[in-house]
C-alpha cells in the first residue's frame, strides 16, 4: 500500500451532512472542538460556510466559533492536499538534523510550511513534536509516524509514484 492510497477519504462540502454532524454532538458538554474535528475529518477542512451553521446550532456567536477555529493550528479553511506531511521542528529533532530536514522539505516541495503544492498533492505543515524524540528527525504522513527521516527518505515519502510505505 502506498501512503497516497492510505489518504483519508473526504467528501465535498455538504450543508445537510454538516448539520447532521453538529447535531450528533449536541448532547456533549463543550461540543465545539469535537464538532470542528468531525467536520474536518469528514470534509478535510472546515468550510467558511460551516462557521455560521455551527454557531446557529450551538447557539454561539459566529465570532465565538471563528475565534476557536482560528486559534487552533489543526483547523484549516481550505481543502488539504492528498498527503498531509507534518515535519517536526522541535528541539529533539533539531539535535539530529531537523533544521536541515525542514529546509529540505520546503525546497523539495517548493512550498512554505502551511501551504499546499500547486498540483494539490501535498500539504506541508510544521509541528512542534510528534513524540518520537529518540528516533528523529520525525515526520508524519497522513498521521503515520516516520522516524530517522533524512532528505532522501523524505523525498521517497512525499513524491508521487515513489511514496511506498514499506521499509523492506
Amino acid at each position: 500500500m502506498t501512503l497516497r492510497e492510505s489518504a483519508p477519504r473526504h467528501i465535498p462540502w455538504s450543508e445537510p451532512t454538516a448539520l447532521q454532524i453538529v447535531h450528533a454532538h449536541l448532547g456533549e458538554q463543550g461540543p465545539l472542538l469535537p464538532v470542528l474535528h468531525a467536520l474536518q475529518e469528514t470534509f478535510g477542512y472546515v468550510d467558511p460556510l460551516a462557521i455560521a451553521l455551527v454557531a446557529n446550532v450551538l447557539n454561539l456567536s459566529r465570532a465565538d466559533v471563528y475565534g476557536v477555529f482560528s486559534f487552533y493550528s489543526d483547523f484549516r479553511s481550505t481543502p488539504p492536499g492528498e498527503l498531509r506531511v507534518q515535519v517536526c521542528r522541535g528541539e529533539a529533532c533539531q539535535s539530529v538534523g531537523g533544521r536541515a530536514l525542514a529546509e529540505h522539505a520546503t525546497s523539495s516541495l517548493g512550498v512554505d510550511f502551511g501551504a499546499t503544492t500547486t498540483d494539490g498533492s501535498v500539504t506541508l505543515d510544521e509541528v512542534f513534536c510528534l513524540g518520537n524524540c529518540a528516533l528523529g528527525p520525525s515526520v508524519a504522513v497522513n498521521g503515520q509516524l516516520r522516524g530517522r527521516v533524512g532528505a532522501d527518505e523524505f523525498d521517497r515519502l512525499v513524491h508521487p509514484g515513489t511514496s511506498n510505505i514499506g521499509f523492506a
Partner: peptide
C-alpha cells in the same frame, strides 16, 4: 477522551479546561 487541536498552550491546565469547554485555549 478529548482531542487537542495543535496548541501547545493547552498543556497549561487552565487553557486545557477552556479547550475542553469549547473555547480558545
Amino acid at each position: 477522551i478529548r482531542v487537542g487541536a495543535g496548541a501547545y498552550i493547552c498543556g497549561e491546565e487552565t487553557a486545557m479546561l477552556e479547550s475542553i469547554e469549547g473555547r480558545r485555549g
